[in-house]
Design a protein around this nucleic acid. Sequence first.
DNA 1: TCTACCATGTAATCTGTTACATGATTGC
DNA 2: GCAATCATGTAACAGATTACATGGTAGA
Lengths: 188, 188
Amino acid sequence: MSIKYAILGLLNYSDMHGYRIKTHIENNFGHMWSINFGQIYPSLKELEKDGLIKMREKTPSDSGGPHKKLYSITKKGRSDFTRWLTTPPDKPMLIRDPFLLKFAFFSFGDIEEAKKIIDKQIELFDAQLKRRKMNRKRWERQTVYVRLLAELGVSQNELYLKWLRRAKTEIEQTPRPSDTSSNKQGGK
Amino acid sequence: MSIKYAILGLLNYSDMHGYRIKTHIENNFGHMWSINFGQIYPSLKELEKDGLIKMREKTPSDSGGPHKKLYSITKKGRSDFTRWLTTPPDKPMLIRDPFLLKFAFFSFGDIEEAKKIIDKQIELFDAQLKRRKMNRKRWERQTVYVRLLAELGVSQNELYLKWLRRAKTEIEQTPRPSDTSSNKQGGK
DNA sequence: TCTACCATGTAATCTGTTACATGATTGC
DNA sequence: GCAATCATGTAACAGATTACATGGTAGA
C-alpha cells in the first residue's frame, strides 16, 4: 500500500502527528495524491504495530494543547522505506477522469451542452494552474525532485488547458450530423 | 458510478455482451480507463434490474456458440444516459502514480538507483507512446471526440517522456550532498 | 457565545482488483 | 488431445470516501 510509504517518507523528514500528515500531503502533493483521515489513523496504527514507526510523545489534553500523538520513524521503518525507494514501482499510473469519459460520448449529445461542460472544465483548470504556479515558486528551494514534480504539474496543467481550448474550437468547426432526429427529450 | 455510464454509452452504440464490453473498452479507452469482469457482470445485472438495459438474446450453449447474453439499452437507459451526459462531471480528475510518489522521496536515496528507476519508466512510456500513436491513426476516422481524446493521450505521453529525460539530466547535474554518510545498508 | 480550526478516531459504504470456478469453441 | 481464446460468473480482499462522533483551542 502506497499510503503507508507516503507516511513513512514524511516521517523520514520529521516527526509528525496524523493531522499534520494530512495537511502536509494536501499542500505538497495535492496535485498527485490525496488522503483521508479514514486512511491515516488506521495506517498509523498498523505502521506502529509493524514496528516501522513509534509514538514518541503524547500531548494529554490537560497539559495545554489538544491531545496529539507525535510519531517518528524507527530504524526498521527507515530500512523498509529505503527498500521501497529502490524498488521499481509496482503499479502503473492510474488516471481516472470522469470528464474525459463524458467527453468520449459527447457525439451522442448536444454540441452546445458539450461546450458548456468544456467551459466549466477550463475554468476549473485555469484556477488550478494559478495555484500550481504559486506552489512552484514556494518549492523552488526544495530538493530537485520536489521542484521537478511541481514543474511537471504545471506543464501537464498547461497542456490540458491548451487541449481543452483546441477541442472547443474543433468541435465548433465540425459539421454536426444535421439535426434530423427530432430529439424529444421526454423527461420526467 | 462511472462504469455504469461507460457501459450504457457503449450499448448506446450497439448491442453487446459483457465480454465484448471489456475488450472494447480495453481497445478504445485502455489508456484512460480499465475495467474488470468483476465489475462488468455485476454492473450489467444492476443496470438490468434498474431497467436501464435489457437482455435481448441469449445464445444457449446447445445452439452453436458459447452462451452469450446480448444486452441492449432501453428507452429509460437512453434518457438516463443523456441526463448524465449533460451534467458536469461530479468528481475531479484522479491521478495516482506510484512512480511520482517514489520520485518525491528520491532525495533520501541513492542517485544511481533513482536513475535506474527513471530509465525503466522511460522504457515503459516509450512503448506506450508507440501503441498510442498507432491507435491514433486507427481513430482518425472516428468522431471528433474520440480523435481528440487519442491526441490528448499522445501529447500527455510525449510531455511525460520529455520531463523524465529532463529530470534525469537535471539530477545528474545536481551536486549531491557530498557522500559523507557511510550509508551501510544493513539489509536482511 | 459562536465559529473556525485543530485533533483523533470508527463505521458504513463504495469501488476496484485478484483469484477462482466453469465450460464452450477454434485451431494446431 | 491441448492450448488459446471466448464467455459468464462469484468470493475475497484491498483501497478509498463519506459520514459520524468526540472534544480542545483561539479569536471575533
